[in-house]
Structure formats: structure tokens, C-alpha cells
Amino acid sequence: MHRSKKRKIIRNKNIIIIAIFSTILLFLTAITPFVFTYYRNRISSIQSMDYQNSKSYSKHYALILEDLDSAFSNSIYEGAKLRGELFNVYVEKLGEDLPFSYDVYERFKMAIYEDVDGIIVEGSGDRDLSELIDRAVDSGIPVVTIIKDSPNSKRISFIGAGRYQLGKTYGQQILSLTNEKTLNVVVLSDTDDNSANPDIMLAGLKDTLVDANVDIQFASIDRKNSFASEETIHNIIMNSDNFPDVIVCLDAIDTISAYQTLVDNNQVGKIQIIGYYNSAIIQSAIEKEIIHSTIVVDTKQIGRYCIDALNEYAKYNRVSDYIAVDIDTIGPKK
């Protein structure tokens, strides 16, 4: 009797084990297709995620800058892009995705062919660019110039620091460095700046320094040639005949090049730099007093204003010819 009970228990145990195993087996068999299906769906959803998560916009503006990837350019782009998001406008830094680098003109042509809704371009006095601007405007694409203007073109607006104001700000910084001795100042400028604009800036500069004991010279940098600024600055400081006391940079790249050249050639403290734009490098150089001061244009503001100008133009078919952005000076703490 006892024995048969025991056997029954063993039998029941066996049945339970079989049942457990069977359940596991069935469970595994049952979930296998689900696991695979779930897994495959996950994979394909990851694949199409980029595609589906993309946002569509009603307008497409092209931003065409000389430097595709400088901190200065990126800051403008960021300002424009953030502003664009508000109005459902997609701002593209044109040429970024292309396998080769193209100059402003070619990128501008592409923008025209791409039928963008607006072009923001770093202007210049160059006539080719003006012609392209005219062509774009004629085919219905409004163009805004920034930083530098293309004054003889059909661009709808120029957004940037007032050149005269900018000149005055530079002048004030140079003034702060004057003493009894005549101050040798070298201004790094673009070769193609044959337009009136540099003159306007120069007018501001000269007006500020009219009574000062300052000798201003201009060193032109060939913008079409890469690495030209470093070469030019090197030549200037190695020229012992006309050793400058102050180098004035009108460009963010020039500022960094000048700073680096001074450090490399052990000229720190002998030559003062008045720079343009602010970045982490420039900031730290100012703190180390290698760069005397830097003139800062609110780049994000430029970006924002571009979008506003193009939007306003699209809405009212007219916009202010010139929109000024703020100029600031970051300099020695005094």
C-alpha cells in the first residue's frame, strides 16, 4: 500500500516534470516566430527611422559662405537654422555634402539650379558674384548678402555690422594702444575688396585715428588662395624693415593665423593683435594677452536676421536695404 503510494508520487513527479518540460518546449516553439518577427521589425524600423523621423519644411534657403566649416560660419548657420525652424524654413549650408569643395560662385550657381527659395551669401565687391546674384533674383530667388555687401547687385538686403561703425571700433582699439611713439599698424584686407565698402570701414578707422600718431598700412590677402593668410602674416612679421606694432585682422581665420604665427615665431608681446570674432582659441589667447582685443559681430544675430529678411521679402516683396547687427569688443580686462 505504502509502496504503491510512493510509486504514485513518483509517477506524479514524472508527469509534472514532463508537463514543465513540455510547457517550456511549447513556449519556446511558440515564441520563436514572435522573437524573430519582433527582431526583424526592430531592424527594419531602425532602417527606416531616419527616413520617417525627418521633418519636412515649406521653404528651402541656401547659405553660401566662404568658409564651410569655421566657427564663424557655423555660428551664423546655427542662428539661421534655429530661426528657420520657427518658420518652417530649412536652411542648408550649401556645398557641405558635396565630395569636392566648390567656390562661392559655383555653389551659388548650384543654388540657382536647385530652385531654392532664398539664398544667403557672403557678399563681396566682385562683379561675377553680383551677376550671379542678379541672375538669381531675376529667376525669382531673393538673395541676401551678409558680412560683406555686394553693393552693385540686385540683392534684396545686406545684413552685417555697419562698416563705418566697424572701422570706428577698430580705431578705438588701436587708440587704446597708442603712446608717444609712432604706432605701426598693419591691416589685413582682402585683395578683391575693390568696392567702396572697405573704404567706408577705413573711413571710420581713419576718422577715429585722425589725431593719433599712427601709421597705417594695408596688407592684402589673396582669398582665392588657401592658406594665404598665414603666409601673408609670416611675411609681415619677418619683414624687419617695417616691423609692425599692431596687426588688425578683419576676419576670424586671419585672427587665429596671426595669433599662431606670433606664437610660432616667438613674437608674443612685441606685436599686438586686434582680432575679429570670438572663439575658444581667441578667447584663451585674449586671456593670455597674446591677442589684445577682438571685435565681435553677433553672428547668430546675422543668421536670424537673414531668415527674417527673406521671410519679410517673401511676404511683402520688400525689405530694408541694410540691417545692422551688434558690434562688441572683447578685450583686456580693465
Binding site: Y51, N53, S54, S56, Y90, E92, E114
Partner: peptide, 19 residues
């Protein structure tokens, strides 16, 4: 469509250019 997706935007650009 104008899209912030690179591929989509490029397709649109190619399409417009091709037109």
C-alpha cells in the same frame, strides 16, 4: 519635399536641377 534628411533633400535638389 524639403526635408532635413540629407538623402531626401539631395533627391529634391537633383530633381529640381534635373527639371
Amino acid at each position: 519635399e524639403i526635408s532635413d534628411d540629407n538623402v531626401k533633400l539631395m533627391e529634391r535638389k537633383i530633381r529640381n536641377m534635373s527639371d
